[in-house]
Design a protein around this nucleic acid. Sequence first.
DNA 1: ATTTTTAAATAACATATGTTATATAATATA
DNA 2: TATATTATATAACATATGTTATTTAAAAAT
Lengths: 190, 190
Amino acid sequence: MGPKVKFTKEQIIDTAFKIAQTEGIDSITMRKIAEKMGSSVAPIYVNFKNVDELKEALMERIISVSRQILKEESTGNPFHDIGIASLRFAVEYSVIFRDLVIKSGKYMQGYDEKMMPALIEEMQKDPALNGFTVEELKTILLKMRIFQVGLSVLAANSLLPKEYTNQDMIDILSSTADDVIMSAKMRRGL
Amino acid sequence: MGPKVKFTKEQIIDTAFKIAQTEGIDSITMRKIAEKMGSSVAPIYVNFKNVDELKEALMERIISVSRQILKEESTGNPFHDIGIASLRFAVEYSVIFRDLVIKSGKYMQGYDEKMMPALIEEMQKDPALNGFTVEELKTILLKMRIFQVGLSVLAANSLLPKEYTNQDMIDILSSTADDVIMSAKMRRGL
DNA sequence: ATTTTTAAATAACATATGTTATATAATATA
DNA sequence: TATATTATATAACATATGTTATTTAAAAAT
């Protein structure tokens, strides 16, 4: 009973996501979403208690998108996949990525601490990383995490050299990984 | 003639800078600056046509602060100094640094293109970088630029390992530079 | 066909902020 | 000392936005 639903929760989140990607998360307003959907603000308030709840739902959507990308890039080597996936997210959703760098509170924070042990474990299985102590592996991981973040930030801000392709980015990520690992081997005299 | 000036342009910019560092650039409002100075908004509008002009002045102040840091870190090796200075800025003015990553439009954009040739020239004078082609030097520079940005972003977001000191940051920057250079040498069979 | 339910629209209210017009009062100058 | 100047305060206005109360009307239930 009652009229058909014309504006769903998903549709609202979709619209918010689009605004976030084009104008930034802080530019999201109830009226702007409504206008973009061709509705009033009423349907939004039916689906969300307030703007904070809507933005929480948006964050969940963003996380789900980044998980989807990670899934698509999965090759069985998390150490490698996470770098590629994060880079792809930064390129495809650059405005949102930049917003996340600022509001890293919930999203990025804790992420490293949680991932670290699993990644170290994964690295220990990698033949190319044979013979390293956990401490050495941690350093290699940290260096690559730093490089990958820098690459993503520069890519999201279009600050890489002109004509730099996605493949170039993947190549330099891989090349630097080689640099770091090779040097670590040299240092321990392998 | 007229009462003494109680609130100068510099004082206003100082106050805006403090708000930018504690709450972010977007949290700056005329009333907030006034309240923090213990004045009304009137002195602000005497010194600035509008809020955009004030924020432009703030940007100039930010650039001048970063220049000052670069000056303080100068050792004659720009390739090295810029990395250290940028890192120090990210640590000391983390909130502003994060804002700059987003609003990189004027600040970061063009920066690389302008600096690149001068840095390459500087690198050619460095004995440790002897024998590399310009193309190889460009790659080394880009890799280090990427690493330095990543390190600065992670530092500004407190995403480096717990207890990570400033010296640790400088050390890992330097260690990675060694990695990249050593590997480049290996590649060309030196 | 009438009534009930409820999704959506509308409009109002509250608050935050930029901005400006006017009033106040401190200081220099005559 | 009286006057002119002007830095500052005050208050009002405009706009943007979150939020809510009320109205409208479409669909189901009777």
